[in-house]
Amino acid sequence: NQESVVAAVLIPINTALTVGMMTTRVVSPTGAPAEDIPRLISMQVNQVVPMGTTLMPDMVKGYAP
C-alpha cells in the first residue's frame, strides 16, 4: 500500500509547506504520494488543511503529481 502525505498540524490557507507540517499514512482515497514530500516543501496550500487531513493534489498551488 502506498503512503500518502497527511497534515501533521493545522495548516492555514496560503501557508508554505515545511517538512514538519507533513507526515505519511496509508489512507483511502490516496492523496499526494509520500515520495513527493521534497517537491511539496515551500509550496503553498490554497485552503485550510486540518490536522490529520490527507493532502490532495488540488490543495497545493502549482502541484501536479
Rank of each mutant, 00 (worst) to 15 (best):
N1S: 13
N1A: 14
N1P: 14
N1G: 15
N1V: 14
N1R: 13
N1K: 14
N1I: 14
N1Y: 13
N1L: 15
Q2P: 12
Q2H: 13
Q2M: 13
Q2G: 14
Q2R: 14
Q2W: 12
Q2N: 12
Q2L: 12
Q2I: 14
E3W: 13
E3V: 11
E3Y: 13
E3I: 10
E3L: 14
E3A: 15
E3T: 08
E3K: 15
S4R: 05
S4H: 02
S4V: 06
S4M: 04
S4L: 06
V5H: 02
V5F: 05
V6E: 01
V6Q: 01
V6R: 00
V6A: 00
V6Y: 03
V6H: 00
A7R: 00
A7E: 01
A7W: 08
A7Y: 07
A7F: 08
A7G: 02
A7C: 06
A7V: 07
A7S: 05
A7H: 03
A8D: 01
A8S: 10
A8I: 08
A8L: 09
A8R: 11
A8T: 11
V9F: 05
V9A: 05
V9Y: 05
V9R: 02
V9M: 11
V9C: 15
V9T: 11
V9Q: 11
L10A: 06
L10M: 13
L10N: 14
L10Q: 07
L10H: 15
L10G: 04
L10R: 12
I11C: 07
I11V: 01
I11W: 05
I11P: 00
I11Y: 00
I11L: 00
I11H: 00
I11M: 00
I11T: 00
I11K: 00
I11S: 02
P12Q: 09
P12N: 10
P12R: 09
P12E: 10
P12S: 09
P12M: 09
P12A: 08
P12L: 09
I13M: 13
I13V: 13
I13Y: 11
I13T: 11
I13P: 10
I13N: 12
N14E: 06
N14F: 11
N14D: 13
N14H: 14
N14A: 07
T15C: 10
T15Y: 06
T15M: 08
T15S: 10
T15G: 06
T15H: 04
A16V: 14
A16T: 11
A16N: 11
A16E: 11
A16W: 13
A16R: 15
A16K: 13
A16C: 12
L17D: 03
L17H: 02
L17T: 02
L17F: 06
L17C: 07
T18D: 07
T18M: 08
T18A: 09
T18L: 09
T18V: 09
T18P: 04
T18S: 11
V19I: 14
V19Q: 12
V19M: 14
V19L: 15
V19K: 13
V19D: 08
V19N: 10
G20I: 10
G20F: 11
G20C: 14
G20M: 13
G20D: 13
G20S: 14
G20K: 14
M21C: 08
M21T: 04
M21F: 07
M21R: 00
M22H: 06
M22L: 14
M22T: 07
M22P: 07
M22R: 00
M22V: 07
M22C: 08
T23G: 07
T23V: 11
T23M: 12
T23C: 11
T23E: 10
T23N: 08
T23I: 12
T23A: 11
T23L: 12
T24A: 13
T24R: 13
T24W: 09
T24D: 08
T24M: 08
R25K: 13
R25N: 08
R25C: 11
R25G: 11
V26G: 03
V26L: 14
V26I: 14
V26H: 12
V26F: 13
V26T: 08
V26W: 13
V26N: 11
V27N: 04
V27R: 13
V27Q: 03
V27Y: 02
V27L: 01
V27T: 12
V27W: 09
V27A: 05
V27H: 01
S28W: 15
S28F: 15
S28A: 11
S28H: 14
S28Y: 15
S28P: 00
S28C: 12
P29Q: 02
P29Y: 07
P29A: 02
P29S: 05
P29I: 04
P29T: 01
P29C: 07
P29D: 05
P29N: 01
T30Y: 15
T30S: 14
T30G: 11
T30W: 12
T30N: 14
T30I: 15
T30C: 14
G31I: 00
G31T: 00
G31F: 05
G31Q: 01
G31E: 01
G31K: 04
A32M: 15
A32L: 15
A32E: 03
A32K: 01
A32F: 15
A32Q: 01
P33D: 03
P33A: 05
P33V: 06
P33M: 05
P33N: 04
A34M: 05
A34C: 09
A34H: 03
A34T: 06
A34Y: 01
A34N: 01
A34D: 02
A34V: 07
A34Q: 03
E35M: 12
E35G: 13
E35K: 14
E35T: 13
D36E: 06
D36L: 04
D36N: 02
D36K: 00
D36R: 00
D36P: 00
D36V: 02
I37A: 03
I37C: 06
I37P: 04
I37F: 03
P38F: 11
P38N: 10
P38K: 09
P38T: 09
P38G: 11
P38V: 10
P38W: 13
R39Y: 11
R39D: 06
R39F: 11
R39M: 11
R39S: 06
R39L: 12
L40Q: 00
L40I: 02
L40H: 03
L40R: 00
I41A: 03
I41R: 00
I41K: 00
I41D: 04
I41L: 10
S42H: 12
S42G: 15
S42D: 12
S42K: 07
S42C: 11
M43R: 11
M43P: 02
M43C: 13
M43H: 10
M43W: 06
M43Q: 04
Q44M: 12
Q44P: 05
Q44A: 07
Q44Y: 13
Q44N: 05
Q44I: 15
Q44R: 14
Q44C: 15
Q44L: 11
V45T: 10
V45E: 02
V45S: 03
V45P: 01
V45C: 04
V45N: 02
V45G: 02
V45Y: 03
V45R: 00
V45W: 07
N46Q: 06
N46F: 09
N46V: 10
N46T: 11
N46K: 09
N46G: 05
N46E: 02
Q47P: 02
Q47L: 08
Q47T: 11
Q47I: 10
Q47S: 05
Q47N: 02
Q47H: 04
V48G: 05
V48T: 15
V49N: 01
V49Q: 00
V49E: 03
V49H: 03
V49P: 02
P50R: 10
P50F: 10
P50H: 11
P50E: 11
P50V: 09
M51E: 14
M51V: 10
M51Y: 08
M51S: 10
M51F: 07
M51D: 06
G52R: 01
G52L: 07
G52K: 02
T53P: 01
T53Q: 11
T53K: 10
T53D: 10
T53V: 11
T54W: 06
T54L: 05
T54P: 03
L55Q: 05
L55F: 04
L55E: 02
L55H: 02
L55K: 01
L55D: 02
L55M: 05
L55R: 01
M56F: 08
M56G: 01
M56D: 04
M56C: 08
M56N: 04
M56S: 04
M56W: 05
M56V: 04
P57H: 06
P57E: 05
D58T: 12
D58F: 15
D58V: 07
D58P: 01
D58S: 14
M59T: 02
M59K: 04
M59N: 04
M59H: 04
V60K: 00
V60E: 05
V60Y: 02
V60P: 05
V60D: 04
V60I: 13
K61F: 12
K61M: 12
G62N: 12
G62W: 08
G62L: 05
G62V: 01
Y63E: 04
Y63V: 03
Y63H: 03
Y63R: 00
Y63G: 05
Y63P: 04
Y63L: 03
Y63D: 04
Y63C: 00
Y63F: 05
Y63W: 06
A64T: 15
A64G: 11
A64C: 15
A64H: 14
A64S: 15
A64L: 14
P65T: 11
P65E: 10
P65V: 12
P65R: 08
P65D: 10
P65F: 09
P65G: 10
P65Q: 11
P65Y: 09
